[in-house]
């Protein structure tokens, strides 16, 4: 039995700010998880990841993060990704401060 591909978004950290970014369907990078492109096919996800890894002049550490479809766009499917999409829980810093989640 083959392991089923988990729907994913392509994510990385911005080289300059360190902030979390997501690959959008337009091929740009957004700071909002909901604006990410959700990949449901492994081949397409891996092609997109390879393209992201080829942009080392603005991104660090691109990888595929599990996500699911939500009413306003893709949502994180693991708690680590929820924190990355929101910011720390001890202060209203990061994306949550800028109402970016």
């Amino acid at each position: 039995m083959s392991i089923r591909f988990t729907p994913s978004v392509v994510t990385a950290n911005d080289l300059f700010e360190g902030d979390v970014v997501y690959l959008t369907p337009q091929g740009g990078w957004s700071r909002l998880h909901a604006e990410a492109e959700l990949f449901t096919e492994q081949a397409a996800a891996e092609t997109a990841l390879a393209a992201a890894l080829a942009q080392p002049d603005r991104l660090v550490g691109a990888y595929l993060a599990p996500a699911r479809r939500g009413p306003n766009g893709p949502e994180p499917a693991h708690f680590r990704e929820e924190f990355r999409a929101r910011g720390p829980s001890n202060y209203p810093h990061g994306k949550q401060a800028e109402r970016m989640c």
Binding site: V20, V60, R84, G94
Partner: peptide, 9 residues
């Protein structure tokens, strides 16, 4: 001493 963490350096 510079790390890259979850949300920032």
């Amino acid at each position: 001493g510079l790390y890259l963490q979850l949300h920032a350096y």
